[in-house]
């Protein structure tokens, strides 16, 4: 009887420990996933924008939409699906990213943009508010995979020239062009 009680207490103890480790593992895995999928961090300095001053509401919209745009871009290139690109990319930027997804898909490659931070600076805001040019100093960990094999994994600092225009309910990215420096 006492042996059975010991067994059951042992089993309970092991069960509890097991459950603890399983929960810890799941939490750690979730944390890892969360870290990998953490949304891009975007800040905007609009003090040098000219000739038009950037309105507070526009400033918030730019930050929000540019963050979504990069989240969608990295999702598209990680999953090789062009669907996330629809909505926040238009014109040249949209067609180029579509081409990039197709090209990756053809060659069995995927790219991951992790731990993104984007420091935006508005350098031009048209008199009528119909186009804005931004300089983005982006930092991210870029992983390029051929199938499951990582062929490139490096921290990158990239300068982008960005053209955004207002859409019906959001600002869309029309040009996203990397340059050696501003």
């Amino acid at each position: 009887m006492s042996r059975r009680a010991d067994k059951s207490s042992l089993a309970r103890a092991f069960g509890l420990r097991g459950a603890f480790w399983v929960v810890s593992g799941v939490l750690l895995a979730a944390l890892g996933c969360f870290a990998a999928d953490s949304p891009p961090q975007v800040t905007l300095d609009a003090t040098k924008a000219a000739p038009r001053t950037v309105e507070a509401l526009t400033e918030r919209s730019i930050v929000r939409d540019y963050r979504f745009a990069w989240a969608n871009l990295s999702q598209a290139l990680a999953s090789n699906s062009a669907e996330p690109l629809n909505g926040l990319f238009q014109g040249t930027a949209n067609s180029r990213l579509h081409d990039e997804v197709s090209s990756q898909l053809r060659n069995g490659l995927t790219s991951r943009y992790l731990n993104q931070t984007h420091k935006l600076e508005a350098v031009f805001y048209a008199p009528e508010g119909d186009v804005m040019e931004l300089h983005d100093t982006a930092e991210y960990d870029l992983e390029v995979l051929d199938g499951n094999k990582t062929i490139q994994s490096a921290h990158a600092v990239v300068h982008y020239i960005v053209l955004m225009t207002p859409g019906a309910d959001r600002w869309v990215v029309r040009q996203l062009q990397s340059v050696p420096h501003f």
Binding site: R96, L97, D99, E100, S103, Q104, R106, N107, L109, S111, V144, D146, I151, Q152, Q177, S178
Partner: peptide
């Protein structure tokens, strides 16, 4: 591999 804007 050549990885660039629109090209892989």
């Amino acid at each position: 591999y050549l990885i660039g804007p629109t090209v892989s």
